[in-house]
Design a protein around this nucleic acid. Structure first.
Lengths: 346, 346
DNA sequence: ATGAAAGCGCTAACAT
DNA sequence: ATGTTAGCGCTTTCAT
């Protein structure tokens, strides 16, 4: 036996039984609060348990119950809570909820094989988790494989909606619509859009919100003011930088998330222009950085921690009701955090 | 049996044995690469294993080997990787290392009882971890209790050094000395110090570095320029704000970490002064925020990810060598990241 | 070279 | 009301 750790031997249910002069079954009944133990015996056993600080061997329970009491967060570079400050906060909510319910949260980096397909991670292959959480969209093929294991899956902040799958998301169209409307309410008539077409569903929803807001206000849309290739901060910087040489610039930009807004703002400042005097910006998310950049970014706040905790609860529910279908949920988000990146016109 | 999840039944070693027409023992030998199985039999069994994608039930192994394959990170609010961006990066390194070695990283919030003493967390009480990591200092009493469980402990970024305990840290005195020297090399003669006396060992080390640098340069130390109560960004802001009304100000500040520097810089800017024109700042850590504040903060970089990975490796080593003593390690850190918060004088 | 069987710590069905 | 015992899936010792 590989008693390879120096860990002190824990007291077992057998020890307790011996000390109380009863069988292990009786102790088990007491532990599990079952009927059929005399009041006196129960008290005696309980007091021994309390004195010794005995707790059941969790691995034995895992084996018997065929559960791991682990929940696995599958991580890809593009939506890693260790890279992206948005998912960083989502993770907090998820963790909190799992802990409360007595589950561990396990992190698992998703890797690809030679043909670029995701490899089933050890934690899932071994059934070392009772539930799986994934941030953002995941390809359909892999999701299917995942679901075939029978382990419940929840998608968080996904843009496309797979069938019969639990997911929790925000309405990106609505968020962008509100952001655009806010700019309009501040007197802006020339409004640009900065989005990330690498995530088509995300892009389409965001753009649609922007589009609808302009349409409702009967404002024309200038294609030259649409930056659609901004996949990250650096690219947002580069694209904005390029746009700045154009003759006629918008007075403001709606950005589909804060990271992009921050990259674009950096370009504007580097170009020698001033924010919000020369150009205004509104973002979406309210990540930590947005408070620290200068000027501080006005943004639509998403309750990221809540997103994570709802995800956790969906998973817990699914774990306790095997065979349940899974459905899409949308979180209402409607808080605007007004900071210094927007100038009120006229 | 509480087959409470909808998880598909996994194939067992018994199934493999049956399919191969051998005993479970033989299959076990093959799995574990042991001697005593005929080449042909071995090949036959292996091919069945490959075809079926069989993997051993991890919970069974956990039970037999009396290990959890979990490593637990004990979290307190003051050094939470979910609050403090320094520990956020340390955690990344720790996680990476644990994963590589086949361990899960479990997060566990440390709680206190009525008399303010730490409660032994479930994960540790249940021996549901093979190793424990703690960020920053932990009180001696609780550390002793922890070590009595026999589970190896590693301290990360601690300031005081407990006996016979693995820990990995940086030399805060040296870091502060170098930061101060850098300011001196830039022509600064009036240098203030911003530190956090809530962490006495940390404060003393940092201050000593500052002190030694000034002494070596034969520069006088002005007590009015020592801000010692800055326990967080807000307090650093307040304290700096208060200092600014003084008649004679230093031309620069050494801050014992970036978070404090950022708070202080905010106060200076709010006061209408300019950085670095009117006052220069140097921080220590190089957290993400430092790149984003304006002006971007010049700072001594600490390789936080490395700190975490070294911690992980110390733990792995301790797990594999029960009864080993544990000792203090210091990481050499000597990289200065020059940004825009320092003005060269004369 | 291979198999039978005990046992890791616990639960639960079945006896008494 | 309490005890006996057969597993959960695997490793390992001891037979053969």
């Amino acid at each position: 036996m590989a008693q390879s750790t120096g860990v002190k031997k824990k007291i077992t249910i057998r020890d307790i039984a011996q000390m109380a002069n009863v069988s292990v079954a009786t102790v088990s009944y007491v532990i599990n609060g079952k009927e059929g133990v005399g009041a006196e015996t129960r008290a005696r056993i309980q007091s021994i348990i309390d004195q010794t600080g005995f707790t059941r061997n969790i691995n034995s329970r895992r084996l018997i119950e065929n559960r791991s009491y682990n929940i696995c967060l599958l991580i890809r570079p593009s939506s890693s809570p260790f890279q992206d400050l948005f998912y960083y906060e989502v993770m907090q909510g998820l963790l909190e909820t799992c802990q409360q319910a007595g589950y561990n949260l396990i992190f698992c980096h998703l890797e690809r094989d030679e043909s670029e397909r995701f490899i089933m991670p050890r934690t899932v292959a071994n059934r070392d988790c009772d539930g799986i959480a994934i941030f953002q969209d995941i390809d359909h093929q892999f999701l299917t494989e995942l679901k075939e294991t029978g382990v419940p899956v929840v998608l968080v902040d996904n843009h496309s909606i797979p069938h019969n799958t639990d997911c929790i998301r925000v309405d990106n169209r609505l968020l962008c619509l509100r952001a655009t409307n806010y700019l309009i309410s501040q007197g802006h008539k020339r409004i640009g859009f900065l989005g990330n077409a690498n995530l088509p569903d995300f892009y389409n929803a965001s753009f649609q919100g922007y589009f609808d807001a302009l349409a409702a206000a009967k404002m024309p849309l200038n294609p030259a003011w649409i930056l659609s290739e901004a996949k990250d901060e650096q690219k947002a910087f580069a694209d904005m930088n390029h746009l700045l040489s154009a003759s006629r610039l918008p007075t403001s930009f709606v950005c589909s998330n804060d990271h992009l807004a921050i990259g674009a703002m950096k370009a504007v400042k580097a170009y020698g222009m001033h924010i919000p005097a020369d150009m205004s910006f509104i973002g979406i998310d309210d990540i930590v950085l947005s408070r620290y950049v200068e000027p501080a970014l006005t943004t639509l706040k998403i309750d990221k921690v809540k997103l994570g905790s709802v995800a956790g609860n969906l998973l817990l529910k699914a774990i306790d009701s095997p065979g349940s279908k899974g459905e899409a949920h949308t979180l209402e988000m409607n808080e605007i955090v007004e900071r210094q990146s927007i100038k009120r016109l006229s």
